[in-house]
Design a protein around this nucleic acid. Sequence first.
DNA 1: TTGTATGCGTTATCAA
DNA 2: TTGATAACGCATACAA
Lengths: 346, 346
Amino acid sequence: MTTIQDVARAAGVSAMTVSNVINGHPNVRPATKERVMAAMTRLDYRVNVAARNLRKGRTGTIGLAVPEIDRPYYGRLAAAIIAAAARHGLRVAVEQTGAVRENELEALSLSRNRLYDGLILSTVGLGPADVDRLKVDHPLVILGERIFGGPVDHVAMPNVDGARAATRHLIDRGCRRIALVCGPRTGETDVSGLRRTGYTQALEEAGLPLDPDLVRTVDRLTMAAGARAARALASDDPGVDGVFCVTDTVAMGVLRGLADAGARVPDDVKVIGFDDVEESAYLVPSLSTIDPDHDLMAARAVDLLAARIDRPEQPLEREEFVSPYRVVARESTATGATGSRADRRP
Amino acid sequence: MTTIQDVARAAGVSAMTVSNVINGHPNVRPATKERVMAAMTRLDYRVNVAARNLRKGRTGTIGLAVPEIDRPYYGRLAAAIIAAAARHGLRVAVEQTGAVRENELEALSLSRNRLYDGLILSTVGLGPADVDRLKVDHPLVILGERIFGGPVDHVAMPNVDGARAATRHLIDRGCRRIALVCGPRTGETDVSGLRRTGYTQALEEAGLPLDPDLVRTVDRLTMAAGARAARALASDDPGVDGVFCVTDTVAMGVLRGLADAGARVPDDVKVIGFDDVEESAYLVPSLSTIDPDHDLMAARAVDLLAARIDRPEQPLEREEFVSPYRVVARESTATGATGSRADRRP
DNA sequence: TTGTATGCGTTATCAA
DNA sequence: TTGATAACGCATACAA
C-alpha cells in the first residue's frame, strides 16, 4: 500500500507538497506539481480516507435512517437524498430501522459516534415522549413528519393540508361516503394521525358526518394490509363511494383488494393516495394522489444538514420546512367515462 | 469531545485498560471495568470511529453501487443487502450510478480509495471491454449479471434459464405470437442480451419462429418506456398474444400501455415479467413473473464479500453463484375465466 | 491484570 | 514555494 510518504520520496519532495498537490492548493510550482502527479500515477497512489477523516474530524458521509428502503416512498426519497448529498460532496449510508423505535434510537447513536457527519432520520417509531432524545449536539434533520415544538430541524410533509385536499378532491368528485385507510394512531404527530386530521377537517368543512365505521386502521402501511382492508370494507358494505389512503403503497393494496371484491374503480368507488410514488402513474387505473415534491424535500433536508455540518456553532433557532403539495388527479378519481388515458410522465 | 485518554484519567487507569473494556477483552478486573464504565457514562464518551478505522485498516462500511435506488428491483435488493450486511456488522453506503459507465468506474475507485472495505457493484453500463477494470486488488462482488470468464466474484441472476422458463410459460398457456420487450443490446452479457437469449431458446424449443418485428427494444428499462413500447406494439398490431418483459418494472409499464390501447390482459394478451418485485403481486391484473430469490442472492453477495474482507490473501479461484428461480403464475397469464383472485402474500 | 510506547496516513501550523 | 513537526484518537506489541 503506497502512502503519501512513498510518493514524496519518489518525487523528491516532502509529504506536505504531495498533500498540497492532492488537495489542489495554490502555491505549488507547475513543474513540482507535474513531478508529484507522475509519481502518484506510477505508484498507483490512493488517498487513505480514514486517515484524512481522522485528521479533519469529518467522515464525508451522512446517515439516512428509513424504515425500509424497498418501500416505494422511501426509495424515491433515498434516491433524491443521495443525489442531493452528492452535490455537496457527501456520501450516504442507509440504515433500515424497520420503523422500530429502538432501531431509530440506535441510528441516532451511530451518528453520535461520529460515524456520520450528520443524520437524516425519517422517524415513524418515535413519539412526542422521545423529544428529549432528539436534543443532540450533532447535525440532525428529522424528515417526513412534523414533531410539534421539537428542538430539532425538520423537513415535513404537508400532512394535514395535503390530506384535507385529497379528501376534498373526492368530495368534489361526488363522493359522500368516504372511507379512510390509515395506520395505527400512535400520537398526534405521526403520519396517520396528521393525515387523519386532514380527512376529518375536509369532512367537517363539507358538512359530511364522520362515520367511525368508515375509518379502517391497518397495522402496517403495506400493500398487503391495504388489500385486506379493502376486502373487509367491501364485504362489510357500508356503502363506500370513496377511499382516501394515507399512502400510495396502501392505496395500491386497496386497488387490488377492491378488484378482488369486484368493485370497479372509479365507477363504484374512487380512490386517492398520498405520496405520488412513481408507480402510481402507471397503475390500472392510474392512482390519483398528493404530490409533496420529494426532490424539494430531499434538497432542503440535505442543505439544512450540510449547513449544520459546516457551521457547528448552533444557532438556536431550529428550522422547519413544510413542503408544498399539489393534487394529482388521475383515473382512480375520474368522473364520467372511464378508460380515459392516464396522466403519465413522458 | 472526550477521548479515551479523558476517560482513562477520570477512572484512574491507562488508556489501554479503557480500550480493553470497550472492546470486551478479557483480563480486566470487574471492579476496574465498572470504574471505567462509570467514567465513560459520566463523560458521555463515544468512540471515534475514524481513529479506529485508521488504526485497524478497516472502515466497517461496504459500498453498494446500483443504477437507481428507487427502481423497485434495486430497492428490494438494497433492502436485502443492508439487512445481510448488518448481520456481519457492516454498514452500507449506497451510490447511484444511473447505469452510466463512468459512474460505475467511479464507484470502483472509491472502493479502491479504501473508503469502503469492499464493494458490491450492480453493473449495467460496463461491458466485456471493461473486464480489465474489474481486476482490482480489493474485495469486489459483481451482482446481477454474468460476466463470462470475468476475473471477479459474482452473484448472478438465472438470466437465460429464467427467461426461457418465462417464455415457455407463455407458450404453455397457449401463446404463439410472443413479443419481447427488452433494453438495448450492449453485448452478450448484459441483462437484456441474456434474457433475450432465453426467449429465443424457448421459441426454438417450441418450434416457433422468431419474428424480429416482435422484439421491441426500449432505451431504458422504465415504466414509461414499457408503456410506450406496448402502445406501439398495439398500434402496429402484429397479432401479439403474449409479451415477455425483461423486468417487472418494464412489465408494469407494458400493462399500462396495453390498457391505454384497449387490450385486455390476460384475455387478449398475456404478460410475464422478471424479478418478482413486491408490487407485482398487487397489480390489477397481478403480474406473473420469475422470482430469482433476492434474499438468497443478497446474502450470498454479502457473505462472499465479507469472506474476502476477512481473508485478504486472495485465493485465486473466483466464485460464481447463480441464483435458483421459480415461475410465479398470476393473473396476467391466467387462462379461462378472468378475475380470479390474485396470488398474493398474506 | 495493567501500563508504556509507538504508529496508522494525513494535514495544519509555522518556519525557512 | 517548500518543508519539518506535531497532532488527530485509537489499538497493538511488549513490558512490568
